[in-house]
Design a binder for these strands. Structure first.
Lengths: 257, 257
DNA sequence: TAGTGGTCTAGACCACAGC
DNA sequence: CTGTGGTCTAGACCACTAC
């Protein structure tokens, strides 16, 4: 038997994590503040360093704290950016103002970097939706979105190559109105949209691309754009940093749910 | 210096995790299959047990594997359930079939348990949206949704208490057409809807309620229902097991990005 | 230089599943 | 009973930050 009676007695790493979490929830440790170091936890709870560390690991994986080597561990701060989907509805303003979460109303600087345009064999699930014949190619546009110079989204769009060959859709600058305006000019105006969403923990490559902190999920949004005839002309796979986004969908209905 | 030259030489826990992840991605370890035990990893990579364990912890936190004490650690299997939001649109079928992810098309058994109805002071952010005067109460309906007997969602709905007092909205069984039909009869038909979404790692209570595996995010969906006059008559906060859901939003637009 | 987080060894004990 | 995952001690070394 081992003597575990230190300052605050014996405690497992889960109990330590619970205590810290409660302190954070309660506001005793506000966002940005420093949480006790491993050394402090060791003496406070009478545990060894690996145990103190594991307690902090729990909260890191919950996305509540971030560690900065040499500096300390801190309660995480969030800045949320709102993405409105059928943008036209939201702007026309019924129920405007009645939002549950607040996002930065002040304008934030958004930009795009690293546009990359290639022609590839589309992945099977994309080829099926775009109804690409065997061997038909897809034009791919990849780009990363930044808000206030931090990456928040990585998007990959697929188009049937034979529809957009030699047009501005295949250029970095697609002109006013963007890709959808160009598709409309080509006789393939997108009018119906489907967005499918999932959330999951990121792959390693996504963690690097979006510079994600531990414990940050990603939201996958796949938008498919259809013409009036029902033909899919775009599949856009977006990977969003879940800690940076609120997604908003507005719709009108007679019977719903 | 320590001799780390075992079977496959020295490797940090990250390298071991990377190797296993690659094996999973590549299909060498299909969903449901058993991943090497801690003992096997120790001899394969020439590390001690805590190091082998940490490698597995990485993948658990990524939601790729689940451990069953005494039995082993296994590659995770997913069963996705599709939630369509403006349901009427999806059913009317433009672009039907062109979905990126497949969900179980076979009927699955869905049910609700533990309905709980109370009257409370609404949280501030809800009171603001429902425009509740100081001291005005809210009726709260809480329930948990199951699919094939596993919990997938926990929902909390708020209504202005003075609107629904003494009606079937305050009863467990709300009758055909549900709450929205009752609200319509009361002269408060909801016609416009806003859904706001976030994804994050679960709180401890949510992990228990939804029986979430490690590395499983939750999706918070907050639906606000507005009458034609723009009054909010319901706020419904849903917590979804992200590993069980695909969310789908269909909409029509003339200009949309 | 002192303090902080990050990694690892070496060895121990416990709880649980499956045979 | 054996093997598996889960927890913990005790002590070491490294990499980085802030002063």
């Amino acid at each position: 038997m081992v003597d575990r009676s230190a300052s605050r007695g014996n405690a497992g790493y889960r109990a330590i994590a619970d205590a810290l979490r409660e302190e954070i929830d309660k506001g005793g440790l506000p966002p940005g503040s420093k949480v006790p170091s491993e050394n402090e936890l060791m003496s406070t709870y009478g545990v060894e360093q690996p145990t103190a560390r594991r307690a902090l690991d729990v909260l890191k994986n919950e996305g509540l704290i971030v560690a900065r080597r040499g500096a300390g561990t801190f309660v995480r701060e969030f800045r949320l950016y709102r993405r409105r989907s059928p943008a036209r509805l939201a702007e026309s303003g019924w129920g405007a103002g009645g939002s549950i979460w607040t996002s930065d109303d002040a304008e934030r600087h958004t930009s795009v970097d690293s546009i990359e345009i290639t022609t590839v064999d589309a992945p099977d699930h994309v080829a099926a939706v775009l109804e690409l014949a065997d061997g038909a190619k897809a034009l791919v546009r990849r780009r990363r979105y930044l808000v206030d110079d931090t990456p928040v989204q990585f998007a990959t769009s697929y188009y049937p190559e034979h529809l957009v060959r030699g047009t501005r859709v295949a250029e970095a600058n697609t002109g006013t109105g963007g890709v959808y305006a160009r598709l409309a000019e080509l006789g393939h105006r997108p009018v119906n949209f489907r967005e499918e969403l999932r959330a999951r923990m990121p792959r390693d490559s996504e963690t690097k691309l979006l510079e994600l902190a531990q414990g940050t999920p990603v939201i996958m949004v796949v938008r498919t754009a259809f013409t009036a005839k029902g033909q899919a002309v775009e599949v856009n796979e977006m990977i969003l940093d879940a800690s940076s986004y609120i997604l908003e969908y507005d719709f009108t209905s007679n019977e719903s749910n």
